[in-house]
């Protein structure tokens, strides 16, 4: 166990690096070492950021992005878990779907955007679809592995007490594979955020991705960076929520590994 004092030193050292970085940018920008039009001083960016927050301007784009993210991510994860459980459980179903999923999985998802725009236009349906598609595959692969890794002893335990198939699924297969599913959902969350921003930039009708790109196109460079900070915070908060949830859903994993 690390002593509190040692931990404090490490945390302080870790925090000092971003501070040094920001200070460096501030100097570079003020002294004209970089073009201040392209890279305004962090202090100026933070002032703009504060304005966005205080005027409530952040609200609409944030809600737009989070809604698309939530809907697309949920659809992707639920579909992937459903199919993944079936594919993990049954060889036949796995063999049926594996060629199809292996065909689509390796395609970098942004490459599908032009086709999706043709079919779905530039609105929310296209954005939600691409987020769902991106979220789908990591969760699918992990769920298949997770279900396969369930120890037969666990399933036989349920059977010997006379639990029928639905109960075995709900009470054994799902919780036992949950840590794997969550590992996949963690990867998907990052991908979902990436895709929602990319598709918003392409659509240009709202959201944080649109805000970043529109500001840059209007030469509102400070605003563009300020929106980037909002996006970074969104990522930070989402990761924190995810960690919190994971610790509670798969609470038996960490202590068991010790």
């Amino acid at each position: 166990m690390m002593r509190a004092k040692d931990r404090l030193i490490i945390v302080a050292a870790g925090c000092s690096l971003p501070a040094v970085f920001l200070l460096g940018l501030e100097f570079a920008s003020r002294n004209g070492w970089v073009n201040p039009t392209f890279l305004p001083a962090p202090s100026a960016i933070f002032a703009t950021f504060a304005q966005i927050i205080l005027t409530g301007a952040f609200f609409a784009p944030l809600v737009h992005t989070l809604t698309l993210l939530f809907v697309g991510y949920s659809i992707g994860c639920i579909a992937a878990i459903s199919l993944g459980v079936l594919m993990g459980y049954s060889r036949a179903i796995y063999n049926l779907f594996e060629p199809l999923t292996e065909l689509i999985r390796p395609i970098p998802k942004p490459a599908l955007l032009p086709a999706l725009i043709l079919f779905l236009g530039l609105g929310a349906p296209m954005e939600i679809t691409i987020v769902a598609l991106g979220s789908f595959f990591p969760v699918l692969i992990n769920t298949v592995q997770g279900v396969r890794a369930v120890d037969p002893v666990m399933i036989d335990t349920a059977r010997t007490f006379g639990h029928k198939s639905p109960a075995v699924w709900r009470r054994i297969l799902l919780p036992a594979s949950a840590p794997y599913v969550l590992a996949g959902m963690r990867i998907s969350l990052g991908l979902a955020l990436l895709l929602v921003v990319t598709s918003e930039m392409l659509s240009g009708n709202g959201g944080l991705g649109d805000a970043i790109l529109s500001a840059q196109r209007s030469f509102l460079v400070k605003e563009s960076y300020a929106w980037l900070i909002v996006l970074a915070l969104v990522g930070l908060v989402l990761t924190a929520i995810f960690n919190w949830t994971e610790k509670r859903v798969a609470f038996w994993q960490a202590p068991q590994a010790q």
């Binding site: 120890d151 002893v153 036989d156 335990t157 006379g162």
Partner: peptide, 27 residues
């Protein structure tokens, strides 16, 4: 009822001791 050698795998880690015991008859 079958009692397994591998108690570590047979006891379900997401259930408390009481929940594990009730898993055998509650349903």
């Amino acid at each position: 009822v079958y009692l397994f050698q591998q108690y570590g795998k047979s006891l379900l880690p997401w259930m408390s001791v009481a929940e594990n015991v009730m898993f055998s008859f509650r349903h």
